[in-house]
Amino acid sequence: MEEKKWIKAAKKGDSQALAHLFKESYPLLVHYLMKLTLNREEAEDLAQETMTKAIEKLNQFQGKSKFSTWLISIGTKLYIDQKRRQKRADAFKAQHMRKLKWQAQSQNEDWDFLLASLGELEDELRVPIILKHYYGYAYDEIGKMLGIAEGTVKSRVHRGIKTIRKELGEDEKGPGTMENPIKQG
């Protein structure tokens, strides 16, 4: 009964009531989303997005369930939408990787495992590697392009190369050097 009073007040614009409802529901929502995402940071981001959506749609809440249940339903829909977008993005990326491979092969260019491995890296690692080792930009230039510190660029390039070498079964001292581990293309 108490929750209904808070909801009614929140719908009338009482920000204290809305804050109270969120404060009461937030821990349950985050724990639920952590079980879905298996990632605390992602769960907290999704919880924030859920709260924003709930504020936008507060007047649509009919009170047929607990407020926390309504938040969980919003969070679940947002999570499913996020996964659908990711799936489409992954399919798009795979399609373009196949297209690049076909173009390279049709022009008698090498499409080695390295390029395939690059395609598997996260963007934050792949982009600096390509800019550094395929296009020859300096670390500070890449940092400016990406809006990150030069040290972060170096770290990402190193981490990405280490990941590729591990995937290819090479150790740190394998073919190439850390300065130029990727064939120029």
Rank of each mutant, 00 (worst) to 15 (best):
M1H: 15
E2T: 08
E3W: 02
K4M: 08
S15K: 11
Q16C: 05
A17M: 02
A19F: 00
H20Q: 12
H31I: 11
Y32Q: 06
Y32A: 00
K35W: 15
L36P: 01
L38R: 04
N39I: 01
N39F: 03
N39W: 02
A43Y: 01
A47M: 09
T52A: 12
K53V: 01
F61V: 05
G63A: 10
K66L: 09
I72R: 04
I74L: 05
T76Q: 07
K77T: 11
R84M: 10
R85A: 14
Q86C: 13
K87M: 09
A89I: 14
D90K: 07
A91G: 06
K99H: 14
Q103Y: 13
A104S: 11
Q107G: 14
Q107D: 14
N108T: 15
E109R: 08
F113E: 13
F113H: 06
L114R: 09
L121G: 09
E122G: 07
I129V: 09
I129N: 00
H133Q: 07
H133V: 00
H133R: 08
Y134N: 07
G136T: 02
G136Q: 04
D140I: 01
E141P: 01
I142A: 00
G143L: 00
G143Q: 04
K144W: 02
G147Q: 07
E150F: 02
E150P: 03
E150L: 00
T152S: 08
T152M: 11
K154S: 01
R159Y: 02
I161N: 03
I164S: 12
I164Y: 08
K166D: 12
L168Y: 13
L168A: 15
E172Q: 08
K173F: 04
K183A: 08
G185K: 15
